[in-house]
Write a protein that binds this DNA or RNA. Structure first.
Lengths: 224, 224
DNA sequence: AGGTGTGAAGGATTTCACAGCC
DNA sequence: GGCTGTGAAATCCTTCACACCT
């Protein structure tokens, strides 16, 4: 893994944003793109773009820029987006249901193979729009994860249940958890978690607004 | 605004996380809390916690720690969470509906006063669980924002519509936009945006997992 | 002993600026 | 002329380590 050893985490975060813009450019039949253009689209400096991309190889052509098709292919490879990755979703409440039918995951080659909930009322409900058929009982969690060797999970359950389920997921072999519950998950080494707390996100924004921080932000989460 | 001049953005991001833990401690009747405890709960070092809090004042008591009630009150004040702030939501699709009924906003003293959508079919639908009564036509956007002097908006519309609506919001006086569309919004000075792209979030996680970055991440979005 | 606040040191990331290529 | 890749400088953030308080 020495490959991605010295790459700054912020650079990795920007990668997805570059790719998003490149895919747009591709749709618009642009053949090449400059670091200048990419930088404006993502809200960073052009030097930053060049440095970020250079961490992963030399894709640019002096005097020309980056060839869109090449770069898209290369970045998909780097991010693993060239392969289908299976994901499970736990929690079929309001947020869970929205996530089920969210098309963005599918576009990025994620495949939602199962949805779980422990509310007996919800079990058996058709999983709206999702590829998998029905919402399943939480009891089946380990079996499904093991059978399909699922490495990624999305957690959309109440805060009180999150830690316990995270542990079950880890034990069953899941390596990455995207957590929407407002708690910091305690995980064993080898398991990565990323928590998105929507209320915290709004609170951040509110703070920036009231303290007069004007500029477009960046990350804070993942974006401009 | 020289007050929040030199405060590192990452420190601001952690503030909400500290507060979240402090409110839990409060619920558990803990009278004081040490930087050590806070640090473990949020996943940073204890020195970091002390430094972060010190940016905003001297709240600690040597040999004792931080008095929970005091610190919670002070931090709510700093984050503006001691006042009710009005928010509008644009987009009543899957995600929009989930956000409408999300209780986390309310807990943090945000008040969702209106929901808009331009789909005539949705207009008039009761706004699920939300405080406001019905989904309104997008035509009413400016009038409502101006009348209630709304400063914050949540954008849950398709990527193609996001930029245009962002401009309308800014013109009507909105100062902060929490954007769920997968585009970087181009905004005028004085308007802050924070974009949460759920697919990008999952992609990040997937990358970290496959490259063997094990540790718990942090931010990337907001935490752990 | 246990705990905070903080200058100074150390690391990490971003920006600069330029050599070199098309 | 336009544009990339990259060392070096600058900046930003985190960690150390310790004075000081209780």
């Amino acid at each position: 893994m020495a490959k991605s050893e010295g790459i700054p985490a912020p650079a990795v975060r920007r990668l997805s944003l570059y790719l998003r813009h490149l895919e747009n450019s591709q749709g618009r039949n642009r053949a090449t793109v400059s670091s200048r253009e990419l930088s404006r689209a993502v809200g960073v400096t052009d030097a930053q773009v060049r440095k970020d991309l250079a961490y992963f190889g030399q894709f640019g052509h002096p005097g020309i820029g980056y060839r869109v098709d090449d770069l898209v292919a290369r970045m998909r490879e780097i991010l693993g987006a060239d392969k289908v990755r299976s994901v499970v979703l736990i929690g079929a409440g309001n947020l869970g249901k929205a996530l089920m039918s969210y098309r963005g995951f599918r576009k990025k080659n994620f495949n939602l193979i199962a949805v779980f909930d422990n509310d007996p009322q919800k079990v058996g409900e058709p999983a709206a729009d999702a590829v998998c058929d029905r919402i399943q009982s939480l009891d089946k969690l380990e079996a499904v994860v093991r059978k399909h060797e699922v490495k990624l999970a999305i957690l959309a359950v109440p805060a009180s249940a999150a830690q316990v389920i995270a542990e079950r997921l880890a034990t069953a072999g899941v390596r990455g958890i995207l957590n929407f519950a407002p708690v910091i998950l305690q995980t064993r080494p080898g398991v990565t978690t990323s928590t998105v707390d929507l209320a915290v996100q709004l609170e951040q924004l509110s703070f920036l607004v009231t303290t007069g921080q004007t500029g477009d932000d960046r990350d804070g989460d993942g974006l401009n």
